[in-house]
Simulated assay, not measured.
Amino acid sequence: MPAPARTPEQIRASIEANRKELGASLESLRDQVEELTDWRKQLAAKQREAIIAAAVTGFVLGGGVAAVGGILFGRKRRKKRRR
């Protein structure tokens, strides 16, 4: 059974309704993208975690540099002591 034929006015009304719905969906998507990509807002919301992460990263990097320095320069000192 074929679908009932629509009048040109019904088709235009349907197109207009779809256009408005698409516009609203696009606006909603734009708002969501803006919210998700706002790194300042994300950082403000997770400020405590960011500070902890920065402190741990600094500790690890500082310790890593100190460890490499100890390995490189400590060997020379140990060799001199053994002689």
Rank of each mutant, 00 (worst) to 15 (best):
M1R: 15
P2E: 11
P2S: 10
P4K: 12
R6V: 12
R6P: 00
T7Y: 04
T7Q: 03
T7D: 05
P8G: 02
P8H: 04
E9V: 14
E9W: 09
A13W: 00
A13I: 01
A13C: 03
A13S: 06
A13R: 08
S14P: 00
S14A: 14
I15T: 08
E16A: 15
E16R: 15
A17E: 09
A17H: 05
A17T: 05
R19Y: 12
R19V: 11
R19S: 14
R19W: 08
K20R: 15
L22R: 07
G23S: 03
G23P: 00
G23V: 00
S25T: 14
S25P: 02
S25M: 14
L26N: 11
L26W: 04
E27R: 11
S28I: 08
L29W: 10
L29F: 12
D31C: 12
Q32P: 01
E34V: 11
E34H: 13
E34L: 14
E35C: 01
L36E: 15
T37S: 14
T37L: 15
T37H: 09
T37F: 11
D38Y: 07
D38M: 10
W39F: 15
R40E: 14
R40A: 10
R40Q: 14
Q42T: 12
Q42C: 02
L43Y: 13
L43A: 15
L43K: 10
K46I: 02
K46E: 10
Q47D: 10
Q47I: 13
Q47K: 14
Q47G: 06
E49H: 08
A50S: 13
I51W: 10
I52G: 01
I52M: 04
A53L: 09
A53S: 12
A53I: 04
A53K: 12
A53G: 03
A53N: 13
A53E: 07
A54H: 06
A54N: 06
A55W: 06
A55P: 00
A55R: 12
V56P: 01
V56K: 10
T57E: 04
G58M: 06
G58H: 03
G58Y: 02
F59I: 13
F59R: 06
V60Y: 05
L61Y: 05
L61C: 11
G63F: 04
G64V: 02
V65I: 15
A66P: 01
A66K: 08
A66Y: 03
A66Q: 03
A67V: 07
A67G: 00
A67E: 01
V68D: 01
V68Y: 03
V68Q: 04
G69R: 05
G70F: 02
I71Y: 07
L72F: 07
L72Q: 07
F73E: 09
F73A: 05
G74K: 03
G74P: 01
G74E: 02
R75A: 13
R77E: 11
R77C: 00
R77P: 00
R78V: 10
R78S: 08
K79L: 13
R81G: 00
R81H: 06
R82L: 12
R82N: 08
R82E: 12
R82S: 11
R83A: 05
R83L: 07
R83F: 04
